[in-house]
C-alpha cells in the first residue's frame, strides 16, 4: 500500500501531510505559502490541490480548526479571551466576530449555554438521553443502587 496503489497517490500524500501540519500547528502564525513549499508545489498549484481535496482553502481550513478548538475550550469552562489567544487569534474582537459568523452565536453566549447544559445534565442526566437508551440506563442505575 505504500507504493502507487491509485493514480496520483504521491500527490495526495503530500497535500494530506500539509493538512495534518495545519491540524497540529493551527494556533501558530504559520506561513501557509511555506506549507506549499514543503509540499514541493507552487502556492497556486498547492491551493488548487488543497481545495479540490478538502473543499476549502488552507486559510479557511485553519480558521475552521481554530473555531472548533475554541468551542471545545469554551465548553470546558475557558474564558473568551483565554480561548481566543489559545487558538491563535490576535484580537478578541476578530475572534468574537469570526466565532459569531461561523457558529451563529457570540462566544460568551456559547460558553454560557454550555455551562447551563452541563448543570442540567449533572442535575437530571436521564432527561438528556432518548428513551430507548435512557430506559435501560434507569434500570441499570436502579439495580446498581439496590
Amino acid at each position: 500500500m505504500d507504493t502507487e496503489d491509485y493514480p496520483r497517490a504521491y500527490i495526495y500524500r503530500q497535500v494530506v501531510r500539509a493538512k495534518l501540519f495545519i491540524d497540529e500547528r493551527f494556533a501558530e502564525d504559520i506561513d501557509l505559502a511555506g506549507i506549499a513549499g514543503e509540499a514541493y508545489y507552487s502556492r497556486h498549484h498547492f491551493l488548487r490541490l488543497f481545495k479540490s481535496m478538502f473543499g476549502t482553502t488552507p486559510q479557511q481550513y485553519r480558521g475552521r480548526v481554530r473555531i472548533e478548538r475554541a468551542k471545545r475550550l469554551l465548553a470546558a469552562g475557558w474564558g473568551v479571551t483565554e480561548a481566543c489567544f489559545e487558538v491563535g487569534f490576535e484580537s478578541p474582537s476578530t475572534f468574537s466576530s469570526t466565532f459569531r459568523r461561523v457558529v451563529g452565536v457570540a462566544p460568551s453566549r456559547y460558553a454560557r449555554d454550555a455551562a447551563l447544559r452541563d448543570e442540567s445534565i449533572a442535575r437530571e442526566p436521564l432527561v438528556h438521553v432518548p428513551g430507548c437508551f435512557s430506559a435501560k440506563l434507569a434500570v441499570a442505575q436502579k439495580s446498581n443502587s439496590e
Binding site: 497517490a9 495526495y12 494530506v16 501531510r17 493538512k19 495534518l20 481535496m53 478538502f54
Partner: peptide
C-alpha cells in the same frame, strides 16, 4: 467524504486500519 483518496491517506497516516483501499 469530499475526496476519498485524501481521506484515505489522512486516516492511514493517523493509524486507521483499512481492509480495502479506494
Amino acid at each position: 467524504c469530499v475526496d476519498i483518496y485524501a481521506t484515505y491517506e489522512e486516516l492511514k497516516a493517523k493509524g486507521v486500519e483499512f481492509k480495502k483501499p479506494p
